[in-house]
């Protein structure tokens, strides 16, 4: 969701975005079949670290959340919970068609079709699981977006929080579960 590029960031934010762009830590949420694509991007052939990107253990420390596959309602709850545990500025990159329009599971009762309705996705990568080249290309685009200050899905999430929350409740009835019985 690329906004028109009226660049109203002040200098300080520009520098901040420069740093955020050049050192993106990712928390990849291995749902579905996309997870297997990431190790090759990190290892010697494609070496994601050249772009300043590297894996991090917890959402608290991560900048970008990679959703790599279809999302059942249970997983969606966990994704939303992790997303809210991350600090802003945070970005979301969605892999594959399952996150765009449900992919091959579009008519399944268990999965959600459009990820964008629940959490603000900054960047989609087409492909029924994109190969590492596609992922590297997407990351390069993400870096330029951040530099230009266009990757502000997180601000959009904060501004239309009720809308998102309503969508989430419509499909999940309850996002944060308070006792372990009705999972």
């Amino acid at each position: 969701m690329v906004l028109e590029n009226q660049d109203n960031r002040n200098l300080w934010e520009k520098i901040g975005d420069f740093f955020s762009a050049n050192s993106i830590w990712m928390k990849w949420y291995c749902t579905g079949c996309g997870a297997i694509e990431l190790p090759p991007t990190m290892t010697s052939r494609f070496d994601m670290e050249r772009l300043g990107m590297g894996p991090m253990a917890t959402p608290r420390q991560a900048d970008v959340l990679l959703i790599t596959g279809y999302l059942s309602s249970k997983t969606l709850r966990r994704v939303i919970y992790s997303y809210e545990q991350m600090q802003d500025p945070k970005y979301i990159v969605a892999f594959g068609s399952c996150t765009i329009n449900g992919g091959i599971y579009y008519d399944s009762y268990a999965t959600i079709n459009q990820l964008d309705k629940y959490i603000p996705v900054d960047l989609y990568i087409a492909g029924c699981m994109p190969r590492p080249e596609g992922i590297m290309n997407a990351f390069a685009d993400l870096i330029t977006m951040i530099k230009k200050g266009q990757a502000n899905g997180w601000r959009h999430y904060q501004e239309n929080y009720e809308w998102y929350k309503q969508n989430q409740l419509d499909s999940l009835k309850e996002v944060i579960i308070h006792d372990e019985f009705h999972e």
Partner: peptide, 11 residues
């Protein structure tokens, strides 16, 4: 870059 990016983020 990592350090200054971390310092820039909210916590």
């Amino acid at each position: 870059l990592d350090i200054f990016k971390a310092l820039r983020k909210g916590s």
